[in-house]
Design a protein around this nucleic acid. Structure first.
Lengths: 343, 343
DNA sequence: AGCGAATGTGTGCACGTTCACACAAATCCC
DNA sequence: GGGATTTGTGTGAACGTGCACACATTCGCT
């Protein structure tokens, strides 16, 4: 009851003026203390620290953002349906990796999922309204309005996968073409004759590159009739695509799926149709997500470090926030082929 | 070049005063227009709308937050290691569901992961600094400092799983005890004699409740030597726990794992040791995450709607933000047993 | 006609910081 | 020992909005 500070949980929050009153030191010096801009004597330092602890002061972030024109937060923008977050461990992994880097730099991650026309408007306004200092763009489509918003604003940003058209936004990507080519050539090398592909959404560059790598690896024996482009990257899409492929040609003995979730959907269909894996049909995927490691049989796939992609994007954004000009910069993360049991 | 608005991407952002200049209408009325507080004539409405479009005005969120003392954002606080986001689809599902509800209400989701002492301080300060209007707490530990912060601040909040001690924070939970009891009694009912359990972290209430349900279902035949508490909810923990159990008793013919990831880790060990599932050993899990549906053999488990839990927490927080007092309120989400192939 | 309510509009102040600037004191350098 | 630095401190503006209040106009009703 005689408690000086925190008298009741309903009391107003302490402001910098309360610290001024408790320490007898001016606003300016306290601000310098808080922001580490130097020029604060040891004595003041001590007094301010004590006063802050005594009144339980925490700087108000809105006031700070308004005055400094910096929010200390970065958006993680996902242009996909909400449930991909449940379906695809890669998304969560990228998010976690980005958050780790950002929070070490004292930045917060704000999540923005674009899956309707309305949400696009909302998020566009948020970006324009200075809600964040930068943006990490995941799953960007061809002609994505988000890209235009970010560019015309000059907002620090980075994206996963290279953009479709010309763009100044730095990106982090893997060599989809080469990686797809390599895993498929090994599929060819193990004697498969009728090899099909389940592609990703055709309006995504990474999907098209994986397809190109597949085609290159197959060379003469490439047959466009054995390619189905799934509308999404989900397990369900894989099921539907595989069913369609088997309808087109029941003799298929090899499948390259553009991501692991698609591959596992395909394996489910193949197994149900009585085919053995890898005996009758060899299956390979892409991503080396957890699905690949835990599926049965364990999936041969292309390993890409989702962690590194997430972390690098965060770093790119942070560097731009601190003033570096990275326009058009690009980074490649290496991949490797992981040969397991499915092919 | 004669472009009036947006002259160069580096131009300063339009403020409400630019709208005043362009429309000839006062700040107050424009503010009312923006916040839908009524009392704006049709003529003004029109003029303001035009002026806003003309100057490309978007309200500044920091200024708005400072003046209104509302941030329109809610924290999603996870007290777990970063990589759980990759490991556990439930976390992503909860996040997506919460975000859907929040963004419909025009709120943003800010992600905060607590996994070190330092991050706990950072996030505590963020919550105290008014960075968010409310918080969704996931994976709260016994005596969690976060709980105290939230409560002493009177911050609107909700948590997944009921708290360990007394607390006023509303929660959403499932009946872990009953659900665990039911799935285990069916394990008993199918003739298993030596049934083991892989429990979750002992400092989490849900883990202890699932253990209690297990014990109740087994009755007389419960043997504490056949229970191992995993330090986390991960696949890897499941592998280690199962190995330990087999060391203790190779005759085990049934396993109840406190979550699906643990169960699948256990199945991997069992399969590798030459045991067949469900022939030699029956395995059941908890959560009905994607892992359960796609594992081989498909896992029998307890279905809980992670989506509904996430959405309800978001709703609870929003209701408190709009002024409702929900202190101590609690909601139960129903579960059901899903009988697949693993037992 | 007159009065109260409903509708519509503008202005001052507050929100809690950061930043630039002015200035005071201590230190350095031939 | 005097001027130029370096170090340290306080004060007055912003930053861009919401909200309370004062005031003007229109409407409905007896």
């Amino acid at each position: 009851m005689a408690n000086v500070h925190q008298s009741g949980s309903r009391s107003k929050r302490a402001t910098i003026f309360d610290v001024v009153a408790a320490s007898g030191i001016s606003r300016g010096t306290i601000s310098r203390y808080l922001n580490g801009s130097g020029y604060v004597s040891e004595a003041s330092r001590q007094a301010i620290g004590d006063a802050i602890a005594q009144v339980g002061y925490v700087p108000n972030s809105a006031a700070r953002s308004l005055a400094s024109r910096r929010t200390k937060s970065v958006a993680f923008v996902v242009h996909e349906s909400h449930n991909l977050f449940y379906d695809d461990p890669n998304l969560g992994g990228m998010l976690a990796a980005a958050n780790r880097v950002l929070s070490d730099a004292d930045f917060q991650l704000v999540i923005m999922i674009v899956d309707t026309e309305q949400s696009m408007i909302r998020i566009g306004d948020l970006l324009r309204g200075g809600y964040v200092d930068g943006a990490i763009l995941v799953s960007v489509r061809a002609d994505d309005p988000l890209l235009n918003i970010v560019q015309s604003l000059g907002l620090p940003a980075a994206m996963a996968g290279r953009p479709d058209g010309p763009s100044t936004v730095p990106w982090v990507d893997v060599d989809n073409y080469a990686a797809a080519g390599e895993i498929c050539s090994r599929l060819v090398g193990t004697g498969r004759k009728r090899i099909a592909m389940i592609g990703g959404p055709a309006d995504m560059r990474s999907a098209r590159e994986r397809l190109a790598g597949f085609q290159e690896a197959l060379g003469e024996s490439f047959d466009p009739a054995l390619v189905v482009s799934a509308p999404g990257w989900s397990h369900q899409s894989g099921i539907e695509a595989m069913a369609e492929l088997l309808r087109r040609d029941p003799e298929i003995d090899g499948v390259f799926a553009a991501c692991d979730a698609l591959a596992i959907g395909a394996m489910d269909v193949l197994r149900e149709s009585g085919r053995s894996i890898p005996g009758d049909v060899g299956v390979v995927g892409f991503d080396d997500s957890l699905w690949a490691q835990r599926s049965f049989p364990a999936l041969s796939t292309v390993r890409q470090s989702i962690d590194e992609i997430g972390a690098r994007m965060a770093t790119l954004v942070l560097r731009q926030i601190t003033g570096e000009v990275l326009s058009g910069s690009q980074e490649m993360v290496p991949t490797s082929t992981v040969w397991r049991d499915s092919a």
